[in-house]
Simulated scan of single mutants.
Amino acid sequence: MSTPTLSGARPSERAAEPAPRFVDLLTAEWIKMRSLRSTYWVLALSSLVAIAVKVNAVHSDLTYIDHPHPAIPGLPTYKYDPLWHGLNAIAADLTALAAASFGGIAVFGEYGTGMIRTTLAAVPDRRAVITAKVTVVTAITLVLGVIVSTTSFFTTNAMLASRHIGLSINDPGCLRAVAAYALIVPVCALIGMAFGAVLRHATASIVAVVGLLFIVPLLFGGDRYKLLKKIGNYLPLHAESRLTLNPNSYTSLGKYPGTITGSWIALAAWTLVSMIVAVVVVRRRDV
């Protein structure tokens, strides 16, 4: 015989508590990330610095544009590339590293504080929890990437318009470059999440991200070994740099260049694999 509760209802008579909806999990993850001050600092400062680096680089170039160096006999006349200078690699690397760190923090931060136990006690469905986290991180970093990419492109080309060398978003390769520059941010954030889920340690995750994004590509450069160069073309930042290349520039792609289609596929593959790794690891490993 069951015992009545204080409310007068027997346990068997009480309605079962409804399972949390996915939108509730998204809201919970958003609250977690919004409550972390480090999130604001990492994302805001990296965005401002990335934009400032590009604007300063183009502003410094104005003097050389107004007073170009004399042509060197035997070499083609230098042609300034607004797309390459407006979306430069240094700022891209900075934004990518910040996004990867943010993605890692979103995962290993909960493991480090032990909050993951509370989360999974409230919502035992681990796959739903990590999927919600992946969704929120992707959305935040995608917005960040779009802001940095579009602001950088339109600001730098507005500065160059007075020199009659600025580009329009409708010029060949520009829309593709802006899109790729924006998409590399969530791609790197998801890579950071994957490392955070696997390693569950702040220092180890950041070192692994730096190694993949900046150290490993050094092993796959040059034109001596075709296989190594082909592999290198599909690394995240190499694929992004191929997509942001101005089709009208004089930049040499070497003997075994990556293709536009292959670079898009590479970014999609890194995104998919990172999401799968994060979801599977969190679902199957003990907390």
Rank of each mutant, 00 (worst) to 15 (best):
R176V: 05
L243S: 06
F214K: 10
L218A: 12
I231W: 07
L218W: 13
F214I: 06
A239P: 01
V187A: 06
K229D: 02
G211P: 07
L219F: 13
T203G: 12
Y225R: 08
K226E: 13
Y181V: 12
I215N: 11
A189M: 05
E240P: 03
A197S: 10
A197G: 04
L235R: 01
A177T: 04
G192P: 02
P236A: 15
C188W: 07
T203A: 11
V207F: 08
G196V: 00
G196Y: 01
Y181W: 15
P217D: 05
V210Y: 05
I184S: 04
L237D: 13
M193V: 02
Y225N: 15
K229I: 00
S205C: 05
P217F: 02
I231N: 01
Y225I: 11
G211Y: 08
A179N: 10
I206D: 02
T244R: 11
K229N: 07
A179G: 10
L199H: 03
I184G: 01
R224W: 05
L243F: 15
G173D: 13
D223A: 08
V178Q: 05
L227F: 11
L228K: 10
G232E: 02
L190G: 01
I231F: 07
I184K: 03
L235A: 05
S205F: 02
V216Y: 05
G196H: 01
R176D: 08
M193F: 07
E240G: 08
L218F: 15
H238S: 14
R242G: 09
R224D: 10
G221S: 13
V210D: 07
L243E: 14
R242A: 12
V207L: 14
P186Q: 07
F195G: 00
L218C: 12
R224K: 10
L213H: 13
